[in-house]
Write a protein that binds this DNA or RNA. Structure first.
Lengths: 137, 137
DNA sequence: GTGGATGCAAATTCTTTGCAAACCC
DNA sequence: GGGTTTGCAAAGAATTTGCATCCAC
């Protein structure tokens, strides 16, 4: 029950309510991107009566604290547990199940030949496709 | 007045209204990402009384027809003219003025060492930062 | 003339906010 | 107990839809 997210929340001084415990539970069990409404219906299975805005507020809070990662998909915003600070990496993202698979390759480590006057601040690199199990089915 | 977007709209069988002419004008004059409301206020300067939903509907339509590119920024969705079919490329994107600068480098042409069971469908690679003029000011 | 496009208004959906009651520490 | 968090309800914002009128072809 004391997963990484719970620990991180504690260290930020947040109170560990049952709602937050289940949010942490969900993100720890999945490495994919989920929609706010998916989070809410998951929590509601365990805590009937949980309000949508509590879930939403917590997702926003966790994203602001940089504990989860926010990502804008065409169907709307999705969240996933932020990867540990171990090593910079990117992801393969399954377009079917939103599962993510880390990859080590980073384009910015290559010789990009960028115009010198452009000051790089950040970058985004993702590969979309079908993961092994989604491709099989 | 007969820019690429206008031609593309004609070839899709769309009627060229003055609203659409100004939308085409805007996208042809800019290589950056613009918000729907920016598009609307630009059109409204030339066509007072143009409705927001007409602009919005047309942006959606052009995006569906793949003539403009939709992109989700934190402040909301933005659009820009789709690059010509000349050569696959990526962009530097200025986080200040949303200007884009094409770059030839494509990570997928490199040796990524992806897991073989993953079927790649598409990819995204963008570099964010400050363009020359924004960095100077 | 006719079907597609527009403008208006209202409906949906998504996201945010205020506040009293409930609960964690 | 005290300050956070929650649930409810309502406000805002973004996006979509219905429909009569208008206009490009």
């Amino acid at each position: 029950m004391s997963n990484r997210l719970i620990q991180a929340m504690k260290s930020k001084g947040l109170r560990i309510t049952s709602q937050r415990r289940w949010i942490a539970e969900l993100f720890s069990a999945s490495n994919g991107f989920v929609l706010p409404r998916q989070v809410h219906s998951y929590i509601a299975q365990h805590l009937p009566g949980v309000s949508y805005d509590t879930v939403y507020r917590n997702l926003r809070l966790l994203a602001d604290l940089n504990l989860i990662e926010q990502f804008d998909f065409p169907e709307g915003v999705r969240f996933k547990l932020r990867c540990g600070p171990d090593r910079h990496h990117h992801h393969l993202i399954c377009i079917q199940c939103q599962q993510t698979i880390p990859i080590d390759f980073c384009p910015l480590e290559k010789d990009l030949n960028l115009p010198t006057e452009f000051q790089v601040v950040s970058h985004k690199f993702e590969v979309y496709g079908l993961c092994g199990s989604c491709a099989a089915s």
